[in-house]
Design a protein around this nucleic acid. Sequence first.
RNA 1: GGGCCUGUAGCUCAGUCAGGUAGAGCGUCGGACUUUUAAUCCGAUGGUCGCGGGUUCGAACCCCGUCAGGCCCGCCA
Length: 534
Amino acid sequence: MHWADVAAKSLSHRGNTHIISTGITPSGEFHIGHLREMLTGDMLARAANEAGLDTDFIFIVDSADPLRKVYSFLGPEYEQFIGHQLGAIPAPREGDNNPDWQRFNDEGWTYADHFLTPFLEALAEIGVRPRIVDNLRSYQDGEFAQLTKVACDSADEIREIIERVSSRELASDWFPWSPIDSKGSLDGVKVTGYEYPLVYWIDSHGVEGSSDITKGQGKLPWRIDWPAKWSWIGVTCEAFGKDHGAAGGSYATGREISTLLGYQPPQPLTYEWISLRGKGAMSSSSGNTIGPIEALRLVPPQILRLLIANSKPNKAIDFDTGMGLVILADEFERLCSRDFDSEMNDENISRRKLVQVEDAKAALRLSMGEPGEIAKATSVSFRHLALLAQTKSNDDAVWKSLIETGAIKEPTKQLKDRLARMRYWIDSEHFPEEMRINILSTPNVQALSLLNDEEKSALLGLTEALRNCQWNAESIGSAIPQSAKDNGISPRSAYRAAYAALMGLEKGPRLAPILAEMDKNEILMQLDSCCQIQ
RNA sequence: GGGCCUGUAGCUCAGUCAGGUAGAGCGUCGGACUUUUAAUCCGAUGGUCGCGGGUUCGAACCCCGUCAGGCCCGCCA
């Protein structure tokens, strides 16, 4: 059974109504790693719905979290906001990346909005449309009030849980509430007393004050904030990264604190990290990221979904924007064209094979942009489209070629969309070199030396045939094999010779349309140079 | 130091929960086809399941140990 269906089935033992949650701090650009959080939750929610459970899928935006430091992508003026809540400070401005006060004052456009909005747009395109819960607003609206009271009243029990489970010692003045200080920061504030609903404090500037826990004048520390959210929202299942899931981590303390708060902790689903192939873990601060927005420019949403659907959550994913994407995309095409039902109806199928077919079927189902959408094979592989996109300068020529070869009757919206992404990909740094069509301008001696005698003689005939032929795809296409036949040689030899001379390869893509788009004289010069080496 | 996860074919991984003849895809190689879509079709190749013990009639799977990689016990998806 597919991992999402297993998790959904396990959820069904708990009840019929579920809130599946995800949560991310909008501290910087979102990347593919965050997409795993969202897609893991989304797929589980879909699987739960399909299993007949009444499921709500939410995304908690941790806008109440403080700015930790002046990240490399921020202007120096952000120094003043360290410790301030992300949903309460201005967004970085185009250009110098310093705070955009005007937009903040005019529209209330915050740091959190700035990073969240494009991410939500990308998510919508991928078919992920969670209900958004803004954490800062939830504090301000008093959603945490009652739970905070319980937490503050039970400060000693909570301290005991955190110290025992995470085996770390909390400071003697630790208190389960972080008040906002006189400047708006959560850092360096010491709690000096508590009398509901006020927490008294003294900040790093020596200013004293009080914080009303029912009005969001501060927040719960993360390890309490999380279980408190479960409780007031009613979360029954949450997908989170392995960092939270490790023993002694925030889930371990959270589940005990949740029980203390009188709420059954949600079923956990921990997932592994995504790294960038050859570059290590994804990290916003080092700039080693690829965003969902950028990834979507390269490939259709279904393929990003497949990346997640195809890997069990506890498997690390090494994301590769080059050949890896080509392979993944072609895998998607293969899945689309399979007839799973007849494969499963085969009487001789082994149990093992059956599991594989079931998982493949489920992975494809969960990769669809919309629940219930039927997969349709386009009958054009990514490899092929990459070829056509490189050899045909305009889209109509691509469609004409596909129609003539009988691959399609006419271009669908899906295909047009895919071609547009393909062109973007080809122009980007991510497109794999081995897929790039490269016509040589100087002979590749090594490739030529691998030719046998027949192929070498085919090269001479080929060169003359091309010299005398009209420079269009059709004429070139017939000249290549004909030049060999005229000399009693297999057409294959002519192709081998052509690939060695023009591309330095043993085989390659259909030559005629490529050559037709090149300059005849340059091609002939290259062929002549190769002939002379013989 | 304590704990979690991962280790199976050249690569990516299923299979481990319910022990019963080691599986897929990709790759590679060969063949077919060809006025070649690096295409397609057919076939072949491929693994002491990290290592060592134990339990069992039987272990990739359960138990103990061990090695390697990642992660957590401040913050990070």
